[in-house]
């Protein structure tokens, strides 16, 4: 780790004031589960680290305006064990529980989950987020890409590591982002972005902005679920996930949202898959159809074609789980 200055402000205003407007100069510390590892590997070398856990207004889970407000430094454990979420927001609880390590759930925060950097092993080895060698050749397409994107965007082949992103997008959540000029609201769906250059980022946050809270609209009656395909039961990154939110009219799906995780540099909204469900009654066959539709536009790489299948299955199983349909 490179030496840095450390600050632990108690107000948001102070915290934002301490952040540099250019990436790399400063970094935000919340749970620490990602940023400290990045710093140990010299992937991040901030001169100042701003701890935001002491800012009271960033904590807490509460009902608000029919929906729910989740503070950015709420831990994954608080999220997973919150009675306010259980049931109504099953997809969030399930996504948080998918992180199979109690230690990480106790430390990792909701904001950190959204802002964590990719686990792409080329990125972690220092080849940049777009994973290029010294001559500018992309390393992923012909390299070891079994954990990479089947929905690459431009030169971005990594997968978004966020566990909560897909569920938040499916539920239509909005993020409050605070910067030097105040607050702005960003739809969860708009929050993630594929970087276009090596020093680009995976979200629309500016370097001196902080995710401060998340608003998830009411989900009463919206059947929602997250299904992760992981190799290990113990702590392991998912290979593909799907979060679904189904608005039902009787037995019929009136509106569906299906969002894929760990298959693209951002969570991927699967419009075709959602359309396959709308106006129909969920059966195993229909869920299978939705799974197929979800990957219709995928562009797998040399070694990750199997993720098409995993994605199809994740969608199928998430849909069936949400709808309460058995195989």
């Amino acid at each position: 780790m490179q030496a840095f200055e450390y600050a632990s402000p108690s107000s948001l205003k102070e915290a934002v004031g301490m952040l540099s407007s250019s990436w790399g100069e400063t970094a935000v510390l919340a749970g620490g589960t990602d940023i400290l590892s990045l710093m140990k590997d010299y992937i991040a070398t901030p001169k100042k680290l701003v701890n935001i856990k002491g800012i009271k207004e960033l904590g807490g889970i509460a009902k608000q305006g029919g929906g729910i407000r989740i503070g950015a430094v709420v831990t994954m454990d608080e999220l997973a064990s919150s009675p306010l979420l259980r049931g109504e927001y099953a997809s969030l609880t399930q996504a948080a529980m998918g992180i199979a390590s109690p230690q990480i759930r106790n430390m990792g925060t909701v904001g950190g989950d959204l802002c964590q950097r990719p686990r792409c092993w080329y990125f972690r080895q220092g080849f940049g987020v777009l994973a290029k060698d010294g001559s500018g050749n992309a390393l992923v397409p012909n390299g070891e890409n079994k954990y990479h994107a089947i929905f690459p965007q431009g030169d971005a082949y990594f997968v978004s590591a966020s566990s909560l992103g897909p569920a938040l997008i499916a539920l239509g959540a909005k993020l409050k982002v605070t910067g030097p000029s105040g607050d702005r609201e960003v739809a969860a769906e708009q929050f993630f972005t594929a970087p276009k250059s090596a020093d680009g980022r995976e979200t629309v946050l500016a370097a001196n902005e902080i995710v401060t809270e998340i608003h998830v609209p009411a989900a009463k009656g919206i059947r929602n679920s997250t299904y992760e395909v992981r190799q290990k039961d113990a702590l392991d990154w998912p290979l593909a996930t799907a979060s679904v939110a189904l608005t039902m009219k009787g037995n019929t799906v009136s509106k569906a949202r299906i969002v894929l995780g760990h298959v693209g540099p951002t969570p991927v909204v699967a419009e075709e898959a959602a359309r396959a469900l709308e106006g129909k009654t969920v059966t195993a066959d229909l869920a299978t159809e939705a799974g197929k539709a979800a990957v219709a536009n995928a562009k797998p790489l040399s070694g990750n074609g199997y993720k098409l299948q995993l994605t199809r299955v994740a969608v199928k199983r998430a849909v069936m789980q949400a709808a309460g349909v058995r195989a």
């Binding site: 199979a100 686990r119 080329y122 972690r124 390299g143 954990y147 290990k232 113990a234 392991d236």
Partner: peptide, 20 residues
């Protein structure tokens, strides 16, 4: 291409956990 070991860690050099 790079000659690197891509998983010199305990995250992607995977070992079974207690439930595996």
């Amino acid at each position: 291409a790079t000659g690197r070991v891509l998983n010199p860690d305990m995250e992607f050099y995977k070992l079974a956990g207690i439930s595996d």
